[in-house]
Design a protein around this nucleic acid. Structure first.
Length: 572
RNA sequence: CGGGGCAUGGCGCAGUCUGGUAGCGCAUCUGCUUUGGGAGCAGAGGGUCGGCGGUUCGAAUCCGUCUGCCCCGACCA
């Protein structure tokens, strides 16, 4: 493509609406334009990236034996009413009516539609297993769209749904999808990690997320270098400490801590570490009462673990100040387990503390030298907290590390949730009706584009992984108007590279060199060739690698070979 | 949804408090000079100042209202 033929406007300044770097850079590079909140137009260069990601996904899904189809973006309410999700999905569903006042939604996902297809098409176990997939635009009316493409309302997703007679078959496909996903993200040139995940609202048994590692990621993922443990922070178990509680040595002492509401404030005042404090959180109980959850002062409550406890209301709800006052007789900052009338559940780490500080259940006072068993009944214990870096890995390999990740893929063993609700069954070997087991496998195609930039950029702009770059090579032509020979050389190079199967963007605009270099960096093509009078006089062009900035002078005749070597073998 | 902020040319902003008919930088167009990391000079085009209503001789500016966009939202115990 010739840049002179593309109306490309790049910005030096960062558009005020863009918060995250991927959004800023795509706007600045003219790859993306916003239409409304969470709605974007993919401009020509950006679309090339999206299509490349899409194509890699498609190839690997096909290779894994999945069958591509395309379902409608708009779906009738009746299907959603069959599974009950018409009501459950709430405001995330964009609803609409047609001219006959029939209700529809713009599909946020396609379990209902595919299950409807499956129950019509699949009648015999002999047809199974089947894995259908599509690459389709979805719409979720997010409460707060943000971060550009990372949490857009309209987005491009690959979703696959598999159907099975038995669990062994489902597991086999699930594993095949996990493998395919790893291949996809590897082929795209992204640093990623599969992690054990909460299956959340979709329901079902096993579930894994695939995260692109980036400091700006919304999710915390916990992993261990020494074993293969990796999990979303939401799901990562915190093991109970191996060392037993030490004996009490201090006497219980009431200390004045006026207006010291936070752990930090109390610790500062008393000059003790947060690990020697307890924090007590009051949450709603399932029976309508309240429950006190006790954590070590330096630990954070994990709301998913807490809500999963029997007796605790799900979803988790923290008591407000008035409820705490009524239950414990003090403001929230001063509550503690000693003498409290609420049921107490302590985190494993909190339960092994001795001689600790906690709230005194009296405004302005804490207790020091408190001990379980002596001052407080031995508590019920549970895993309540978020794992922190350095905790022992559940895999047994050693301390865990925590990294930020952007969720770009998610696979589930769904089971029979939808097939039962929608009566999707086949006849088994014995001629008996059997509800099909399902798996579902999603990839956020448009989100991958943003995640790739979050992971791969510098101060000058985007650094596309080669397989995603809109073009593999950009040719910067210096002062083409001034020099016939430069223009001729650039044109020849352009033709030669294209004939060799290389995707080339040639910057033949009438612009100053500085502008072209800056735009080349911003747009992020991995390989740059510069054709100018100076080099040409010596029969050379200049090569520069975007990521490293490494430069090299090349003889004109060697360029095609050189670039081909850089690009490596074409993917199979 | 709750809280906060913003809305002035394609982008970034000033002007609003103290009302007098809109300005700067970038971008765009023309010409000349320049030409290896976002050039200089000269000129030009482009704005219902988010919408509606009100106050006023007069509103970007004051008042009301609506809309749009952005940010934050258990982590205090």
């Amino acid at each position: 493509m010739r840049l002179s033929q593309l109306p490309l406007t790049t910005f030096k300044e960062v558009p005020a609406e863009a918060e995250v770097i991927s959004h800023q850079l795509m706007l600045r590079a003219g790859m993306l334009r916003r239409l409304a909140s969470g709605l974007f137009t993919w401009m020509p260069l950006g679309l090339r990236v999206l299509r490349k990601v899409e194509q890699v996904v498609r190839e690997e899904m096909d290779r894994a034996g999945a069958l591509e189809l395309l379902m409608p973006a708009v779906q009738p309410a009746e299907l959603w009413q069959e599974t009950g999700r018409w009501d459950l999905y709430g405001n995330l569903l964009l609803r609409m009516r047609d001219r006959h006042e029939r209700e529809f939604c713009f599909g946020p996902t396609h379990e209902e539609v595919i299950t409807d297809i499956a129950r019509r098409e699949l009648k015999s176990y002999r047809q199974l297993p089947v894995n259908y997939y599509q690459i389709q635009t979805k719409f979720r009316d997010e409460i707060r769209p943000r971060f550009g493409l990372m949490r857009a309302r309209e987005f491009l997703m690959k979703d696959a749904y598999s159907f099975h007679l038995d669990h062994a078959s489902l597991q086999k496909t699930y594993e095949a999808m996990a493998d395919a996903y790893a291949t996809i993200f590897t082929r795209l040139g992204l640093r990623f990690r599969p992690v054990e995940a909460d299956s959340g609202e979709i329901g079902g048994a096993r579930s894994q997320e695939f995260h692109v590692l980036a400091d700006s990621g919304e999710d915390a993922i916990v992993y261990c270098d020494a074993d293969d443990f990796a999990a979303n922070l939401e799901m990562a178990p915190a093991l109970a400490p191996a060392t037993p509680r030490s004996a009490a040595t201090q006497r219980l002492d009431k200390v004045s801590t006026p207006n010291q509401r936070t752990i930090d404030e109390v610790c500062d005042l008393l000059d003790i570490p947060a690990q020697q404090c307890l924090k007590t959180l009051v949450v709603a109980a399932a029976d309508g009462g309240l429950i006190a959850l006790v954590l070590r002062g330096d630990h954070e409550l994990n709301p998913i673990k807490a809500a999963a406890l029997p007796g605790v209301a799900a979803p988790l709800r923290l008591a407000d100040a008035a409820e705490v006052q009524a239950a414990a007789g003090c403001p929230p900052g001063f509550i503690g387990p000693v003498g409290v009338t609420l049921p107490v559940i302590a985190d494993h780490s909190a339960a092994v503390l001795a001689d600790f500080v906690c709230g005194a259940n009296e405004d302005g006072f804490h207790l020091a030298g408190a001990n379980w068993g002596r001052d407080i009944p031995e508590p019920e214990t549970a895993d309540l907290r978020n794992v922190v870096a350095g905790d022992p890995s559940p895999g047994g390999g050693g301390p865990v590390r925590i990294a930020r990740g952007i969720e770009v893929g998610h696979i589930f063993e769904l089971g029979d949730k939808y097939s039962r609700a929608m009566n999707a069954s086949v006849l088994d070997q014995d001629g008996k009706e059997s509800p099909m087991l399902m798996g579902c496998y999603g990839i956020g195609v448009s989100r991958i584009v943003a995640a790739a930039i979050e992971q791969n950029h510098d101060d000058n702009g985007i650094i596309w992984p080669e397989p995603m770059a809109p073009f593999q090579v950009v040719i910067v032509v210096l002062n083409p108007k001034k020099s016939e020979s430069v223009t001729a050389a650039a044109d020849a190079l352009y033709d030669d590279l294209q004939n060799a199967g290389v995707e080339v963007l040639v910057d033949d605009r009438k612009a100053r060199p500085g502008v072209k270099f800056a735009d080349a960096d911003l747009l992020g093509m991995p390989h740059r060739l510069t054709v100018g009078e100076r080099g040409l006089a010596a029969g050379q062009v200049e090569y520069r690698e975007r990521r490293s900035g490494a430069e090299e002078k090349l003889a004109l005749d060697d360029v095609v070979k050189f670039i081909q070597a850089k690009l490596g073998p074409a993917p199979a």
